[in-house]
Design a protein around this nucleic acid. Sequence first.
DNA 1: ACGGGTTTGTTGGTATACAAGCAGATGTTG
DNA 2: CAACATCTGCTTGTATACCAACAAACCCGT
Lengths: 143, 143
Amino acid sequence: MAKERTDAQRYQLSQQVGFNLRRANQRHVAIFAKHVEGLTPTQFAALARLYEFESLSQNKLGRLTAMDSATIKGVVERLRAKGLVSSRPDLNDQRLRLVELTEAGAATFERAEAQAQMARAETMEGLSAEEARLFEVLLGKLV
Amino acid sequence: MAKERTDAQRYQLSQQVGFNLRRANQRHVAIFAKHVEGLTPTQFAALARLYEFESLSQNKLGRLTAMDSATIKGVVERLRAKGLVSSRPDLNDQRLRLVELTEAGAATFERAEAQAQMARAETMEGLSAEEARLFEVLLGKLV
DNA sequence: ACGGGTTTGTTGGTATACAAGCAGATGTTG
DNA sequence: CAACATCTGCTTGTATACCAACAAACCCGT
């Protein structure tokens, strides 16, 4: 057995918000992967935004999904490789790349939405309905 | 302006727990980086565990910090490059690599602990003291 | 003692995530 | 209109994060 320090010296990592935020997120990603086949949470988020807004520039899509321009580039690229989105230059503003859902992308999102709901339920299963509602409110204030 | 779908069709990504867990974690990592210079949250977590237990095998350290063996390998490697930990083979069990804090590592952790506390405070600044306490309890039930 | 299962650490591959630096396009202001 | 600032997308580099496959070392039951 490894020796432990006394309580006075011990730092309670397991009770640190930052550590637990990271673990909660890790756990949710794992649960999401189990329920939603073929899409990561970030890819799902991108599809959700494109479903909401028919067409978005790549950077704007990134901002709406909390990804910087380097990250969203890769996500769009992988969604494109799966045939779920298309992208083309904007004729009015030549800096922009307009990204859109394909039909397959819209269908995939609609199917994934129900699965994502199940992932959410499993993520929250340790909390009562009342606690879950409260947690979501507090989490919303944090971000 | 991009066209939006009607409310009936709209998926409220911004209210999804998974999405907000990811954003909350991103935000915390950014705040942590601002307050704790030279250490990432995961590197800090590893130092915290090594401060708690004097000596740990690499894999066990990974388990205690919620990192798989591939991830913890890189973290230990970078901490070693900074001179904050040392690692050596275990003579009793030749599979193991024992990882320990160096003196510089212990000092760095003690300094970083106060800074991490400030990062925590800033992360939670949107919540009242009572809400923050409650949030931590609920988050603890989730992980 | 030995053959089978487990554990540990490593490697390679994929996917976020962000900083910094870049070039081209656009906007703004004198 | 010209100078300047801003924005967009791209690239490189670093750091998690996890999966799958692997070999060496260990453990355990027979």
